[in-house]
Computed example of a mutant assay.
Amino acid sequence: MRDIIKTAAELLTVLRNKKPLVHNITNYVTVNDCANIILAVGASPIMADDLGEAADITAISSALVLNIGTLNRRTLESMLASGKKANLLGIPVIFDPVGAGASALRNEATKTILTEIKVGVLRGNMSEISHIAGLGSNTKGVDASEEDIAAGDALAIAVSVSKKLRCVTAITGATDIITDGNRIAAVSNGHKMLSGVTGTGCMTTALIGAYCGAGEDAYTAAVAGIASMGLAGELAYEAAGGKGTGSFHVAIIDAISRLDEKILLERARIHEK
């Protein structure tokens, strides 16, 4: 088996050379951050959520990212149309079920997307993925609850969901777990200040979309995207953490823009089980 850190680092170089177009139907609170993080890693973002063009934009893209952070029925229709187009054309779909478990509408939307669209990567926090696993959750809005984090077995839940949905599942937290049901990786990069900036989860999903658009292995793409965000948190703290969360926020984008194979090889903390 090739070393996952080396494989992820090489994928970053492929991404920067390929510059894949990544279509995002995403959270309007964080849409600007998602666009900038995709640009910073070397890909090209496009945000098109009107039903009249969403599927057409997906058709010319290398990956599709769906994020229900600011869910409404209008964009849900666009997500379904785009997801079905992506499936038809073999374009990877990355789904972020923000707040799943928090409301009937979010639960309905999550179930519909996972039923009608073949998702390649599912990324969420412990509460969101626990809900999808059918275990119930104590979700705190769009954040994972302390109860779910303390009580849940992230590895077992991620493997179960991956096998059920036949996709890569990533549960992000203090230690991130990524699995395709067979391969399992734990990523321990990151910094606690990341939780103080809105949108870091959305940005992580967007990064996974960029890596998926550059390569063919969704598991490697998910590991690379999550490790990249964790490293960005560490580097941003070193550069600007003492200045406060505003400077830290900007430094995350700076760190991703300067990320390269050498940094990943030297600093990524990824363990395959």
Rank of each mutant, 00 (worst) to 15 (best):
D50I: 11
E108K: 14
S257G: 03
L80T: 12
F248H: 01
V159P: 07
A170W: 09
N32P: 08
I38N: 04
A239L: 12
D50H: 14
L64D: 04
I25S: 04
P97H: 13
G136Q: 03
S188Y: 07
S61K: 05
P97L: 14
D33Y: 13
S145P: 01
N87Q: 04
Y211C: 12
K163I: 00
G233I: 12
T112C: 14
E53R: 11
K111Y: 11
H249Y: 08
T204L: 11
D56H: 07
L235V: 08
I25D: 01
N17A: 14
G209C: 00
R123D: 06
K192S: 13
G173M: 05
G201N: 04
R73Q: 15
A227K: 08
R123V: 04
V14T: 07
V159N: 10
D33C: 12
V121W: 04
E238F: 02
T115V: 00
A54S: 12
C34V: 05
K118T: 09
R267L: 04
A158F: 05
G134K: 12
V119K: 11
A43N: 03
R269D: 02
E108T: 13
I37R: 09
E147A: 15
S78T: 10
G152C: 14
G69K: 09
A185G: 07
G141W: 08
T26D: 06
I253R: 00
A59F: 01
I263P: 06
V197Y: 15
G225C: 06
D254L: 05
G181Y: 05
H271I: 13
A55W: 03
G136I: 03
L71R: 14
V93K: 02
L155S: 09
R16Q: 13
I113W: 14
S78K: 13
I94E: 06
I4N: 12
I94W: 08
A222C: 14
G99S: 00
S247C: 13
G213H: 01
E234M: 01
A251T: 00
D217V: 15
C34A: 00
V98C: 01
P92A: 00
T26K: 09
A43P: 05
V31D: 13
M193R: 13
E266M: 05
D49P: 09
V197Q: 15
A240W: 03
A9N: 07
L80Q: 11
A185C: 09
H271M: 12
V31K: 13
E238S: 01
L39W: 07
R106L: 06
N32R: 10
L66W: 12
G83K: 14
T200V: 00
G246R: 15
A150W: 02
L235I: 09
D260L: 11
G230H: 03
I226M: 10
A144V: 06
T112R: 15
A210G: 09
M79Y: 14
N107Q: 04
H131M: 15
S247Y: 14
G52E: 10
